[in-house]
Amino acid sequence: MNLLQTERPLLLKLQAGLLAVLVLSATALVLKPLEENSSRALQAGQVELRMDALDQSVGQGVVLGVMGGLRSLVADFAWLELNRKWEARDRAGLGAMIQLVTSIDPRPEFFWINSARMVGYDVPHWRIAAAGGYQQLSTAEQENIIAEQAEQALVLLERALRVHPQSPRLKLEVGQIYLNRLQDFESAAPWFLAASKEKNAPYFVARIYADLLLRLNRPAEAYAFLKTLYLELPDDPMAQATIVLERIRELEAELRIEGAAAFSPNP
């Protein structure tokens, strides 16, 4: 054995190499179920990385960082860079960075919502200013720009909803764009309704939905909705049950519902 070890270095190296291959392969095979289970569980909480979005525009450091396990961190830094583009009113740069950030890490809703706000609310101002300002552009031209940007923001949020189909914040954001940018109450209402049905939706979303129904001249529908809502509200001061009840009473007056037909808060 000693002779073998000391006088046949090549044999010794082969022996060591072969043992390493055997032990490591056996370890990998034995641990395969553990590894697969863990990987599956980790992937379940993650969205698949779109490598094609990374290939061109970014440096190798970013690609390596993302693939090496620093995905969130790289996305965070890309987000800071996105903010720099936003401050500089660099429209092309902003678009590219939104694409990059949401490709690296589509998980934070924060990225989607704030990107959509930049595209839908801020970029129209930049475009109008670049075209000569509010004084120079006609209302129709301004509305055109606003509609175009709102459309882009909606496309972005549509992508976001594919990643987070149950997000009340994203649905609310879609509704807000229809409401605030396009003044399209008809389209906004279903999104507020959908948002209000999701878990952890803010209480005010449902109240806005009822308001929208009123603006759409559907008071009976609003009344029915608020009655159901009131009964479902939890015992939480934040739920503002008294405001909902006030609104119900106002609608009863408007719809002339009186006496026994009126809503009873304690059935």
């Binding site: 000391t6 006088e7 046949r8 270095p9 090549l10 190296k13």
Partner: peptide, 13 residues
């Protein structure tokens, strides 16, 4: 006796 291999072909010193 102590031999040291020189190189990988097993030449000894």
């Amino acid at each position: 006796v102590k031999d040291y291999p020189v190189g990988i072909r097993g030449k000894r010193v």
